[in-house]
Amino acid sequence: MNNDAPSGVRRGCALGSARKQLTEVELTWIEKKFEHWIRFGRIAQDRIVTRRTRIVGFRPGAIFAFVRWMANDYGTISSRIDVLRAVAPDEAYTTLPFVRPGGEILLHIEGWPKVNEVLSAIDSVEAAGVDPCDAAPDHWRHVHNRIAAGQSPRPYTMERHLAWLKRREIED
Rank of each mutant, 00 (worst) to 15 (best):
70 M>E: 15
93 Y>I: 02
43 I>W: 11
10 R>V: 09
90 D>L: 10
87 V>Q: 02
58 F>Q: 05
83 V>H: 01
137 P>G: 01
7 S>I: 13
91 E>C: 09
165 L>C: 12
157 T>W: 11
146 R>Q: 14
9 V>L: 15
165 L>Q: 15
62 A>Q: 11
15 L>K: 13
62 A>G: 05
9 V>G: 04
48 I>V: 15
167 R>E: 15
114 K>E: 12
28 T>P: 01
146 R>H: 01
139 H>V: 06
9 V>Q: 13
61 G>L: 03
75 G>P: 11
38 I>E: 11
140 W>M: 02
60 P>L: 04
137 P>D: 02
8 G>T: 11
22 L>G: 08
88 A>C: 05
21 Q>N: 14
126 E>S: 15
89 P>I: 10
59 R>Q: 14
71 A>V: 06
34 F>R: 12
162 L>G: 04
24 E>I: 10
119 L>Y: 05
138 D>T: 08
114 K>P: 00
73 D>N: 13
101 P>C: 03
112 W>V: 07
94 T>P: 00
28 T>R: 10
136 A>D: 15
92 A>S: 13
88 A>R: 09
117 E>G: 03
57 G>Q: 07
23 T>R: 06
140 W>S: 01
48 I>H: 09
66 F>D: 06
3 N>H: 06
88 A>K: 08
60 P>V: 04
142 H>V: 07
78 S>P: 00
82 D>V: 05
105 I>R: 10
54 R>S: 11
98 F>C: 03
25 V>G: 07
127 A>G: 09
92 A>M: 06
64 F>I: 02
157 T>A: 12
120 S>G: 10
114 K>W: 02
5 A>D: 11
47 R>V: 14
99 V>W: 05
101 P>G: 03
76 T>E: 14
151 Q>I: 01
160 R>E: 14
143 V>H: 00
4 D>F: 12
49 V>G: 03
159 E>K: 14
7 S>V: 13
71 A>G: 12
148 A>K: 08
61 G>C: 05
94 T>A: 07
29 W>Y: 15
137 P>M: 01
